[in-house]
């Protein structure tokens, strides 16, 4: 077994300017008067875990628990303030479906652009093009600007591109809520298949039912602290119990 993701003592502090300085003038004035005050906000506090090849892991927790920050650090979008994250392999982020699409380009053109954003060459996308389009069931509309797609169509195309490109780790951030029942079922099938192929899945959600179904292991974060890390069923139950306790 090899470690696909190693998070070692990861801490993330955000420095928030007390009052946002949005203009150069304000900034200079404050700099001169030494009034640039900052406050520190800790989004992640000394979090460590390892994820092995072929594992399906969920990150769960309330809003503001640090799930998305952790995901951003893993994806390389942000650097941790302290500690380190090592990722051994390529990541296919299932980015908020369609974030990389240009509405004025056609579906076809967007497949290549999106592929390039995920780090894939034109040729590689060409080889996978037909499969991507047929999986998204968009053959008829592929030469129409994405601007006129429905949100379901955009979600299908985004999912199809992200899951057809070669990557060792699939990162899914609460995107499956969009799309109808059929699409969701297809997504779940596809993810199960990827897991069988030995890919690693990192899933972020607060839907414990979905987590139990898709993942074997769950990591529970709360206010940046690691609360529990273990079998999905146990961690999810503990999380729900704790939530109930909070309500009372």
């Amino acid at each position: 077994m090899s470690n696909m993701i190693e998070a070692n003592n990861v801490s993330m502090h955000f420095i928030m300017e007390q009052e946002r300085t949005n203009t150069l003038k304000e900034y200079m004035v404050k700099l001169v008067r030494r009034k640039l005050r900052f406050s520190r906000f800790t989004a992640l506090d000394n979090v460590s875990f390892n994820i092995q090849r072929g594992e399906s892991v969920a990150l769960i927790g309330q809003n503001g628990s640090g799930k998305s920050t952790m995901l951003k650090i893993i994806a390389g979008v942000m650097d941790a303030t302290e500690g380190s994250v090592r990722v051994n392999g390529s990541i296919a982020p299932l980015i908020e479906l369609g974030a990389g699409f240009d509405p004025d380009l056609t579906g076809r053109e967007n497949v290549y652009l999106n592929g390039a954003l995920l780090g894939h060459k034109h040729r590689y996308m060409q080889e996978n093009y037909d499969e991507i389009v047929s999986y998204a069931e968009l053959e008829q509309f592929i030469d129409v600007p994405v601007r006129s797609y429905s949100s379901g169509m955009i979600a299908r195309l985004g999912f199809s591109i992200a899951t057809h490109v070669q990557a060792d780790i699939l990162v899914v951030d609460e995107v499956l809520a969009v799309g109808d029942y059929n699409f969701q079922r297809k997504c779940n099938q596809r993810m199960s298949r990827m897991l069988k192929e030995g890919k690693t899945l990192l899933f972020v959600s607060h839907d414990t039912k979905l987590v139990k179904r898709l993942c074997k292991r769950a990591i529970w974060l709360d206010h940046g602290h690691l609360m529990a890390d273990g079998p999905a069923r146990e961690v999810c139950d503990a999380y729900r119990e704790w939530m109930k306790g909070q309500e009372q």
Binding site: E109, L113, A116, H122
Partner: peptide, 20 residues
């Protein structure tokens, strides 16, 4: 350098959209 082809795709996009 590894993402050089992305620059290519972005340039293509800009050129396509400029006079579409």
């Amino acid at each position: 350098v590894r993402y050089a082809h992305l620059i290519g795709e972005l340039v293509k996009r800009d050129l396509k959209l400029k006079y579409r």
